[in-house]
Every structure is written in structure tokens, then in C-alpha cells.
């Protein structure tokens, strides 16, 4: 890779690695695996960098790689299985604002989603991706994204509860 391209790649890593690890964490539920996945994705990105001619093409591209790496390794389907239980934890009350509790609640809820639904929900409602972008990243139709997003949100509502959502709105 040429020096200028390496500089651009380095800048991308410096600014985007942490958010990408967060994205991967939401998909696999484990910080270590998330970082490992992003590291793998960044290596693939390095190899592909010379042919990515637009900066705005990089982020969707690397997200697709993260999804693919997780899928290849079975991590999407193995969402943090060691911490799963057969019941979602008690819904937190209004006084439960501790980040660790929130994380456990969220992870447990996300873990209950099928892999593709989870990926759609994270892409659509955390990464603010359009239906079209989600479809491209996941290699499925826009209709599938819409239906998976709707089902995923419904599942989360059921798991997290309207009371919880209302408390957060008030909080």
C-alpha cells in the first residue's frame, strides 16, 4: 500500500475502530470477541483499501466484513451463550440506571433475537442504516429487512417491556 493510502487507512482505524468494536459487541455480546472480529475485519479492509475509491464506501464495507467474520465464525449464532439463561432478567425499574444492569438487560434481549433479526436491529436502529443499506450489508432483500426489523423490535418490546421503555422516556 502506498504511504498516502496507509495514512488514510490509519486515520480510519484511529477514529472508527472503537465504534466498530461496539457494533460487533452488540452483535456477539462479548468485548473480547468483538475486538478480535474487528481486528480481523480491519486486516481484510487493509487488503481491500486500494480498491475502495470513496471514503464513504469504507464504513459500509467494513461493517459487511464484520458481519461476515462473525457469521463465518458462528459468533452471530453463538451470541454470548455462556451468559444466557432461559429467562430474560427481571425488567429493571425506574431506579435501575446502572450501566452494567442496562447492558445485561440489553444483551439478554439481543441474545434472544435470531442472528439476522439482531443484525437488522443493530444496523437499523443503532447504526442508523437505511433499509437499502441493511439489505446490502446482510445480502438479503429490502422486504426481508423490513420484516426482520419489525419482528425484532416487537421481540425487544416484549422482552424489555413497555414499562421499561416508559421509565426511560421519563428518566
Amino acid at each position: 500500500m502506498q504511504a498516502e493510502a496507509e495514512r488514510q487507512y490509519g486515520d480510519f482505524v484511529a477514529t472508527r475502530a472503537a465504534p466498530l468494536v461496539g457494533f460487533a459487541f452488540l452483535l456477539c455480546g462479548d468485548w473480547h470477541r468483538a475486538e478480535d472480529t474487528v481486528q480481523s475485519a480491519l486486516v481484510k479492509l487493509y487488503l481491500a483499501w486500494p480498491r475502495l475509491d470513496r471514503v464513504d464506501a469504507v464504513e459500509p464495507y467494513v461493517r459487511r466484513i464484520v458481519l461476515r467474520v462473525l457469521a463465518d465464525n458462528g459468533r452471530l449464532a453463538r451470541f454470548r451463550r455462556e451468559r444466557l439463561s432461559d429467562r430474560v432478567p427481571e425488567r429493571p425499574g425506574a431506579d435501575s440506571s446502572d450501566a452494567a444492569d442496562d447492558r445485561m438487560v440489553l444483551l439478554s434481549a439481543l441474545a434472544a433475537l435470531p442472528p439476522r433479526q439482531r443484525a437488522v436491529v443493530v444496523l437499523r436502529f443503532w447504526e442508523d442504516q437505511s433499509i437499502e443499506q441493511c439489505a446490502e450489508a446482510l445480502g438479503c432483500s429490502e422486504g426481508t429487512v423490513k420484516s426482520q426489523a419489525a419482528r425484532g423490535l416487537q421481540t425487544l418490546r416484549n422482552l424489555l417491556g413497555n414499562q421499561f421503555l416508559a421509565s426511560k422516556e421519563r428518566g
Binding site: 490509519g10 482505524v13 468494536v21 424489555l160
Partner: peptide, 24 residues
């Protein structure tokens, strides 16, 4: 609310070992 919940869940992200240099 989901967005806020995710933000909270990500708030305790551990320090990254990935740096510009390690990635390069």
C-alpha cells in the same frame, strides 16, 4: 429508548488494543 439503552451498554467499553500501528 433502545438507542439510549445501547449507549449505556456501550459506555463501559474496555480500552482498545487496536491502534493505528497494530492495524497497519
Amino acid at each position: 429508548d433502545l438507542h439510549e439503552l445501547i449507549e449505556r451498554a456501550l459506555a463501559d467499553q474496555p480500552p482498545l488494543s487496536i491502534t493505528r500501528e497494530t492495524a497497519l
